[in-house]
Design a protein around this nucleic acid. Structure first.
Lengths: 343, 343
DNA sequence: CATATTTCAGAGAGCGCTCTCAGCCGATTC
DNA sequence: GAATCGGCTGAGAGCGCTCTCTGAAATATG
């Protein structure tokens, strides 16, 4: 039929009224057709549909959600700068994939936003979410005592967090049992005869960082050994740096538990540079089981956490909340120690 | 005053009417205060503000944008899967940073979305943008003849693309002169005495990939030399792979122009593994001037493109369009050859 | 003191849509 | 043939907000 439609600029977008008029029906009927109601006679339905087609009609979301009180979109908020989110760590991308999968299945739109530590972007995101742009929010990668989840929740926005909150709060979250998982990893090292087990901890303003360190510490204490800790920020680079520090602190260490695979890989590099053989001289255990963990030199023994599922579950939970359901305040997904060659 | 506010669930959020009532003024006046109009008597203003505070009022965006026809948010659409966007390539993060900077300055919200090659997510993004969720859209990392920009534009959404479009279209775009930049890079190699110059091209379904290859080809032709091409997808890994292919094709090559720094780094790795010295045996030029380019072994000679500025300009242009201004259909930002040690 | 001018609050229309409710009409039932 | 029923359509209210327009009070002007 040729594409005779013109470019429509802002104001003169066709409305449902126009469609109705052109199809010779009422606005109500046009609305029924657009929303897929079955109780419309086929020949009327067709008339409306061709009017929609001819006019290039697209429903005005603002008007729609004004009455339905829904927007069919969910915010995924990263309390993190863009450069961190888009770093060498595929963690975020897995989370996003999980959330996407779940939202696409129910035809909801994912809206990604990043907020800096505080300041203007923080407020803007809060206004955005509380202002009814979204039906719910998933917040992840929180640092410190981020007030955002609580704020949004109070304002009536369904919120689910990815990772335990550092403040007392009733906002539900999805996570793995970091403490327990770390303990398992460390026990594996001890059980295989390692005696001086160090750790490269994650950032201590994030629950994952804190809890994995806690798990390490308690495992060490249980077996009456001294802790040896360096702190990184989950990145490869910080892992390498931390590893050389540890080697400086205790040249005789024979194992290290890194709180992320990225840091573990950095550690491998640092160990190689320091002339240590892995696992012969030093055993290394990571955390995450990222794809690259099986391609490191040597392949990394690590704690697998189901990152994509974490995203999926978060999405599922927030959708349930938005649907008015009551949900479990805490949902812990299982981890698994994957033994490869580094430990 | 204590935080006595309750958690508000969906329906019973306070409206402007409630605020007005509580403050003993009309809705119009309350609206004026909320929107910062100056023509309100101070004592009335205060009454309204404290009512807002007490009720925890937040304007309903749907209602607001229904009348203003604005949403104060801009979509940044990546025609790319999450895993590519969040890959080891800081390109996206720089674009995002640029866009963010510009939008924050005018208090607009950035909404990030990813669309797969086609299918459901593609339609959903289209509906989202056309449905009036955003005031404009910036589309980047397009593959092939993506119809999205044209579609949105036709539907009346201000659109700016990052990168030349592969189809005939009136949608404005921001880019660098890839062809020219590539030619400059290759000439540098030729001018410094290299004779067998290969290239690792970018993906041939993206304008940046195509145009840089074109620039390489024409520079080679101008000096009467044969082209030697391998194609990558801008990633480190593909660069390494392409490099070994090239070495297989012509063991005597003495220079390579890679269409991205990531690929150039992959190439460096592959060259090292093949026992070639850089730049002694083989000179390498990259493209982008990413941060890591100065830390490679040896530091990378590369074509600097102002990625963050590309993002900034895109944002600025789309805002101008949304403001009803006419804008230049094409905006090319300058590049610069940065000479380091690899060539 | 009367009039013109300015300042500021309120009334009310209407943005584009959904959804309830009422009503029409043809089919079914007794 | 009258009464009942069910399937479809249309009328209209109203979601929460902005913004124009009107009008009252306050101030300036002759």
């Amino acid at each position: 039929m040729g594409d005779a439609r013109m470019v429509l600029s802002g104001r003169d977008r066709p409305t449902l009224e126009n469609v109705a008029q052109r199809a010779g029906v009422s606005r109500a009927t046009a609305s029924r057709v657009v929303n897929g109601s079955t109780s419309v006679a086929p020949h009327i339905r067709d008339k409306v549909l061709s009017a929609v087609e001819a006019l290039g009609y697209v429903p005005n979301q603002a008007a729609r959600s004004l009455v339905t009180q829904r927007t069919d979109s969910i915010a995924l908020v990263a309390s993190e700068t863009a450069s961190r989110v888009f770093s060498d760590d595929p963690f975020f991308s897995s989370i996003i994939r999980g959330v996407s999968l779940e939202l696409e299945a129910v035809d909801k739109q994912l809206v990604l936003m990043m907020v800096g530590p505080s300041g203007p972007s923080h407020d803007r995101v809060e206004r955005y979410a509380t202002g009814g742009h979204v039906d719910g929010a998933i917040i992840f990668s929180m640092h410190g005592a981020d007030p955002l989840p609580e704020r949004l929740s109070r304002a009536g926005v369904p919120v689910v967090c990815n990772g335990r909150l550092l403040i007392q709060s009733s906002v539900p979250y999805i996570d793995v049992d970091n403490d327990d998982a770390a303990r398992t990893a460390v026990h594996h090292l001890l059980d295989t005869g390692r005696r001086r087990v160090a750790t490269i901890a994650g950032p201590q303003d994030m629950s994952a960082g804190i809890d994995r360190l806690k798990g390490y510490r308690s495992a060490m204490q249980d077996s009456g050994r001294r802790s040896l800790v360096a702190v990184g920020d989950f990145t490869r680079q910080s892992g390498a740096l931390a590893m050389s520090q540890l080697l400086g602190d205790d040249p005789d260490l024979d194992a290290v538990f890194a709180a992320s695979d990225a840091m573990a890989e950095g550690a491998l590099r640092a160990l190689r540079q320091a002339g240590r053989r892995v696992p012969d001289d030093v055993a290394v255990v990571g955390f995450d089981d990222m794809d690259f963990a099986r391609d490191t030199e040597p392949p990394l023994t690590t704690v697998r956490q189901p990152i994509t599922d974490l995203g999926r579950m978060a999405a599922r939970q927030v959708l349930r909340m938005a649907g008015g359901e009551q949900i479990e305040p805490v949902l812990l997904l299982p981890t698994e120690l994957v033994k490869r060659e580094s430990a």
